[in-house]
């Protein structure tokens, strides 16, 4: 992986000494953090900020969705797996939103908690309800394959902050993709009931796939700082087809949903999600916890 070195990596925490013979030794490690982005002096252009806002909103909305599984997973281990993925995504969202907010003098919290529904720029698939476990896995499969392809290209972004965030996120979405594939294989090629549910789940999510790969004026304007979404479609189709084949699932032939998340037009689900996500911050402005 030719990931660039984060320009503002903080090495101060990496001083936990040599290996102790404990299975639970804890080290913070080194990676670009939102706090590092918040103090950097480089501000993104308006277009790059809008582009980062899209990436951040995608991850933020999905993180909120996945967080709902905590205490509701089929086993406590899966609770933790989905919660872990949600936290990874929240981390990506924090970095992208912090960077976007830099252009407008806003913090990540300003953007997460104080925007209205039509100001969010996430694509529709991210806000779709969790459904049963199979539906969540189908959504994860589509999203993780897409995000991994996207971030593997964004590590070469002309914008060094976007590239650094992508480099960190890439390792994490690589695992999200593996998790979704493992479950798709087990549920698709499992029992009759799990196969039926997994096929239905893929068909439920499929209409929202096309929107992820729509080019528009912004993706043209950001140029080398971003990735033209349509250029990822070929690889996406090949990868997901291979997984579905192995899982004995059929590629759906259903019409696409209109989409419009990139313009702030959303399905009916986003409003409820935001109401729950934002209520505490709005009821107690400035509170910390």
């Amino acid at each position: 992986m030719n990931a660039p070195t984060p320009a503002h990596a903080d090495h101060s925490l990496d001083s936990f000494g040599d290996a102790a013979a404990s299975a639970t030794r804890v080290t913070p490690g080194n990676a670009l953090r939102p706090e590092d982005i918040a103090i950097q002096t480089v501000r993104p252009s308006e277009d790059v900020a809008q582009y980062a806002l899209r990436l951040g909103d995608d991850s933020l909305i999905l993180a909120q969705r996945l967080g709902h599984w905590i205490s509701r997973g089929p086993e406590i281990e899966e609770d933790i797996a989905l919660g872990n993925i949600a936290l990874d995504l929240l981390g990506h969202a924090r970095s992208f939103l912090t960077y976007a907010g830099h252009a407008w003098g806003k913090t990540e919290d300003d953007l997460a908690y104080w925007r209205e529904e039509d100001e969010f720029r996430s694509a529709w698939i991210f806000e779709q309800p969790n459904g049963d476990f199979g539906v969540t896995i189908a959504r994860q499969l589509v999203v993780a394959i897409y995000q991994r392809l996207l971030y593997s290209r964004l590590v070469e972004s002309a914008d060094s902050t976007i590239a650094a965030i992508a480099a960190k996120a890439l390792k994490e979405v690589d695992y999200h993709r593996d998790h979704a594939i493992q479950w798709t294989l087990r549920l698709g090629d499992g029992t009759d009931e799990s196969h039926r549910r997994m096929q239905a789940a893929i068909e439920l999510m499929w209409p929202y796939v096309d929107e992820l790969f729509d080019d528009d004026e912004l993706t043209e304007r950001v140029g080398d700082a971003g990735v033209r979404p349509s250029t990822l479609r070929g690889e996406f189709d090949a990868e997901i087809r291979a997984v579905l084949d192995e899982a004995t699932l059929a590629l759906p032939a259903v019409p696409r949903a209109s989409g419009g998340g990139r313009r702030g037009e959303h399905t009916e689900h986003l409003g409820y999600l935001l109401a729950e996500m934002q209520v505490l911050a709005r009821k107690h402005p400035g509170a910390t916890w």
């Binding site: 299975a23 639970t24 030794r25 913070p28 281990e77 933790i80 797996a81 872990n84 493992q182």
Partner: peptide, 12 residues
């Protein structure tokens, strides 16, 4: 994979 999520979250 579950072991990875449960026991190596903090670089262990």
């Amino acid at each position: 994979r579950n072991a990875r999520d449960l026991y190596t979250r903090r670089n262990e």
